[in-house]
């Protein structure tokens, strides 16, 4: 069975599927995430596919501040993703709350609710930085143990 496990882990790193969730962002980061998927940057050439279903996803890209309403959605989505998983927080808002950190409905960065593996700064981060963040996430991904039997 060990050979099979090694095979699965290896192929997962070669073709990770990502889920993107806008968690109260201003759209700036979201359109940059989408720009990564479109012809000029085209991360699909690395085998990365954007999926809509958390149960299909290996990588989770979160943009924006966490507020009191979407924290439940965020925690729910992360819980639905199968292990091993990597959470990438994008943009100043996803890191700390950014310019909105003092606003009354803002809790702060994504790490206030779910554990974050990679932080990508920028307002918004450029597509190159996002791709770099995803690649860093994949390195972490390789080290994460698969807990499934």
């Amino acid at each position: 069975m060990d050979y099979l496990k090694v095979f699965i882990t290896k192929s997962r790193i070669k073709s990770p599927w990502l889920l993107h969730f806008d968690c109260g962002s201003c759209n700036g980061c979201d359109i940059e995430v989408l720009a990564c998927l479109t012809p000029v940057y085209d991360i699909e050439r690395f085998g990365i596919i954007n999926v809509g279903n958390p149960k299909h996803a290996d990588l989770f890209l979160v943009t924006g501040t966490v507020n009191h309403r979407n924290k439940k959605v965020l925690a729910n989505l992360v819980a639905q993703m199968p292990d091993p998983k990597v959470v990438v927080a994008l943009g100043s808002c996803g890191l700390t709350g950014g310019v909105f950190r003092e606003a009354y409905n803002v809790i702060g960065g994504v790490d206030k609710v779910v554990p974050v593996d990679v932080y990508v700064p920028g307002c918004p981060p450029k597509p190159e930085a996002i791709i770099d963040g995803v690649v860093t996430g994949l390195e972490k991904f390789a080290r994460k143990k698969d807990d499934r039997p």
Binding site: H68, R69, E102, A103, Y104, N105
Partner: peptide
């Protein structure tokens, strides 16, 4: 519409007051 329990009691959502 926007608010959950946690912030609804903030007096008119004033930042200065809640701090």
């Amino acid at each position: 519409l926007y608010l959950e329990e946690e912030v609804r009691d903030a007096p008119c959502c004033r930042i200065a007051v809640s701090e």
